[in-house]
Write a protein that binds this DNA or RNA. Structure first.
Lengths: 241, 241
DNA sequence: TCAACTAAGTTCTACTGTGCAACTAAGTTA
DNA sequence: TAACTTAGTTGCACAGTAGAACTTAGTTGA
């Protein structure tokens, strides 16, 4: 640790940034929000897609989470999403402008909650389908690595927590919940086992009303404790491959 | 995100630090390594105990993990421990010297691997027993919160991963492995269930030799994949409370 | 009007990994 | 050599899930 001459701390400091990996489900597929890098001179990775984020503003942002929430609201209009820390990436080489550390957050939204950002150009921002461990193209900075890490975290936690539930609106049917797990996991989920798993864990409670459609109406439910995900006592464990 | 005038980036930057929560087991109890804050003028929290860490040195540290490893080696002499990111804490108020973000790592060591740091005064550094969610005293900065988070992570992951295994030396008996789980979890662990859990997960392989003592010799084992913890298909689920 | 269709929700059986208790095995100690 | 101690095994119970088949409750179309 560099010794600090009293009251100075004048040694060089890295840049501090915050990025947000924002997941949603569109047309039964997992998607992630990306923004296009500006193409001004001196800008790194001009025109490339990147995770939404930017430098911490020490005047505006009182802490890292506030900074992440600000960026999320700026891009999606969403004010109270599910948000957790993913990790941080910092090195001398990841940004040509200098030693930079970014604090990465991880958000999950129902697509219905997203309002297109006012004053932003179409084409500057977009939802990209998640395929395997990325979006099928190289991103700016080390954002491929970060995105892959976020996808792995989401899929991993879907095996033993209720995390994918945050991709749904406030009320939903158990079939919809089952379906969003299947979308995240990339494989079918058994109906009967899933229902007892969810109900006996106390994850949800009945909401008023039913979802009507082409067949038997389905009971609506809501999360009993929306603040934090529920842990199941076992992972999924399908017999066949 | 503050607009960067091309080639300048002259806006104020937060401080960037790295701290390390280092766990070990001493005398059948979980311990954490703390260092005493210096008492020079201008130093925050003089004389208080804190997590080992310090500012990132952009000349010396090529990335965050290298910085964490450097601090770990500096304090313990250990060069290849189990190390994972815990999270990051950053705000305007957590350090009186200014807006600071710290990247916190989480290390686990066998106590036998620790060499007292050369050139450090005794009393400047110490192993503190973990009781409940801390060490029984207030620490510098927000290090109480960080430590509590690290303890929760360790105990939580001990329920469904092999994480506590990193508190043991390279070879160990299954009884020693069971015991270190019991120490971390703070409750007894069943022998038979634990053995089948560990063996059928392929966590360990037989090593040469046995541990002899006052009774029947015990087979030595080593981790089959020391690089990363193993996930078990279920959490522990003892019947009685 | 009602048979066909569809998706919701239930029931039954099997199976896996674990908890628990009792047991056997292999060494040391008095 | 009997008593003691800890390693390691065995047998049974049990909870939570997987899978398939079933019932229920609505819509749709001839």
């Amino acid at each position: 640790m560099p010794k600090n001459p009293p009251s100075s701390q004048s040694f060089p400091r890295p840049f501090t940034a915050v990025d947000v990996v924002i997941f949603t489900v569109i047309d039964d597929q997992l998607h992630v929000l990306l923004v296009k890098r500006p193409s001004g001179s001196g800008e790194p990775y001009p025109g490339r897609w990147a995770l939404p984020g930017g430098y911490v503003d020490i005047e505006r942002d009182k802490d890292l989470q506030a900074c992440a929430l600000h960026k999320l609201k700026e891009k999606t209009g969403v004010v109270s999403p599910y948000l957790e820390q993913l990790g941080s990436w910092g090195s001398a080489s990841r940004d040509p402008r200098g030693w930079t550390a970014t604090h990465v957050y991880f958000a999950m939204l129902p697509h219905t909650a997203v309002k297109p950002a006012p004053g932003s150009q179409p084409g500057e921002m977009g939802w990209f389908q998640v395929v395997d461990d990325g979006v099928g193209q190289k991103l700016a900075f080390d954002h491929d690595t970060i995105l892959a890490s976020a996808i792995a975290r989401l899929r991993g936690k879907a095996e033993y927590t209720s995390l994918p539930a945050y991709l749904l609106p406030d009320t939903f049917t158990l079939s919809e919940l089952q379906h969003v797990f299947a979308v995240v996991l990339g494989r079918p989920v058994d109906k009967s086992g899933f229902r007892t798993r969810v109900l006996s864990a106390g994850l949800v409670e009945e909401a008023d009303g039913v979802r009507t459609g082409q067949s038997r109406p389905a009971q609506l439910y809501r999360l009993k404790m929306p603040q934090q995900p529920t842990f199941f006592p076992r992972t999924f464990n399908p017999r066949k491959d």
